[in-house]
Design a binder for these strands. Structure first.
Lengths: 235, 235
DNA sequence: AAGTGGTCTAGACCACCGT
DNA sequence: CGGTGGTCTAGACCACTTC
């Protein structure tokens, strides 16, 4: 942190989620915020833009900044990289690590991860349990030269928290592909569904700020329990 | 248009898609672009930010601006409001208008559209055909006070083009909820699937720039043919 | 050390909303 | 018309990458 506009965005985000502006449904003007935080109006605008992009507010020229309707709480948020734990704060989330070991990239993985065939990868398969019911299966591959160490203790918690806070990785961008497919029997069993039932699938290719891909993942969600939310702003 | 940063973004977007920077995989520096377009560096940065948000490029501090790997062409783009026609430019897209008439909002529609029960709405149900195969079913409700007129000729083409270019509506933001559900028989039939097969569903709540909701839609995609792409940047 | 993007400022002027 | 967001500028200084 230590960057003003991020701090302001974070501060306002917290105020918004705590309901501080719910009565008026409106934020103070940019001018007022600039005065309050003792920064220039440009800096306020940069902070505010983040809130707009995250779907908290919208701006109307000549009129002001307004709260967007709060979204329901039990959606998976496509725009965040925070993971289930942060997306579903109201729920009890458990994780069962089904597999975790180092392996070598085959041709297909190498191509998708843009690395050499045979490069070392961490492979992990996890079952996510929400409110004591199976919710999703997550299969991930991490490049070992970027994520040199991973163990079950970490994988049971949020891997992303570990990557960001401990390994100090800075995540840059991701491609997410969503589709729907019929499940194999073993996958279905893990989710307590029948073979042939569909799964909602998100495939994720994640890069660091410098553009290097470091993770590939595939999450298969219980089709009756998972909903994905994406808030879009045009501008 | 007439806004510099948008024009620059559009210009660069075109150059990128035409492959102008493919050799180096890199864009000119911000300074150079500022000189080229005769604007300040801030204006260049604003244009560039749009390209970043749209998933075309990424920036690396101290190093430069680089192209992101081109995405495959046959994805539905979640971040755009352009509609299928623009998302799948390589495909032949036909639209069959199954229903189109004015109706009154019931309690549920009124609540979701934030209008009065009984308010007039345009209802339309369309079948989208891609490369001569059924691809999706789209059910939409438009507030009639905002979209006063709609006919089959418009509904066969892109409704959004009509809303933006003819009605001069300015779209502000949208909530998109994605999930997966088993289809009813008549829906399945339209997509040439079996009753009980799954559908990939996007429910869309769209607001104007001033925050007023004007459209609700539900698109049910053929689960074997549709893939949704979302490119995310963190910053 | 040079090159390049990231943050921040102060201020001007425009465009739109609501009274 | 006053209030408020939108665009744009010119310039300073910082942080990171690359050599």
């Amino acid at each position: 942190m230590a960057v003003k506009y991020r701090e302001i965005a974070e501060f306002l985000e917290k105020e918004i989620t705590e309901g501080k502006f719910d009565e008026t449904n409106k934020l103070p003007t940019e001018e007022e915020l600039a005065k309050q935080f003792e920064v220039s109006r440009s800096t306020v605008r940069k902070a505010v833009t983040q809130l707009v992009n995250r779907g908290y507010i919208y701006q109307v020229q000549g009129s002001g900044m307004f709260l967007r309707k709060k979204s329901e709480t039990d959606y998976i948020n496509l725009g965040s990289l925070r993971g289930l734990t942060k997306d579903l704060p109201a729920k009890i989330i458990e994780t069962k690590v089904l597999e975790l070991h180092v392996m070598e990239a085959d041709d297909e993985l190498a191509s998708r991860l843009q690395c050499e065939t045979g490069a070392k990868l961490y492979y992990t398969k996890r079952l996510r349990i929400v409110n004591e019911e199976p919710f999703s299966i997550e299969i991930s591959y991490f490049k070992k030269d970027i994520v040199p160490y991973l163990n079950e203790e970490i994988a049971v918690q949020s891997i992303y928290t570990y990557l960001i806070e401990d390994l100090k990785l800075s995540i840059g961008f991701a491609d997410k592909v969503i589709n729907c497919a019929l499940m194999e029997e073993d996958t279905a069993n893990l989710l307590q569904l029948k073979s042939g039932d569909p799964g909602l699938i998100i495939e994720n290719t994640v890069s660091l700020t410098n553009g290097i891909i470091f993770e590939l993942s595939k999450s298969i969600f219980h089709f009756q329990k998972a909903k994905i939310l994406n808030r879009v702003s045009f501008k």
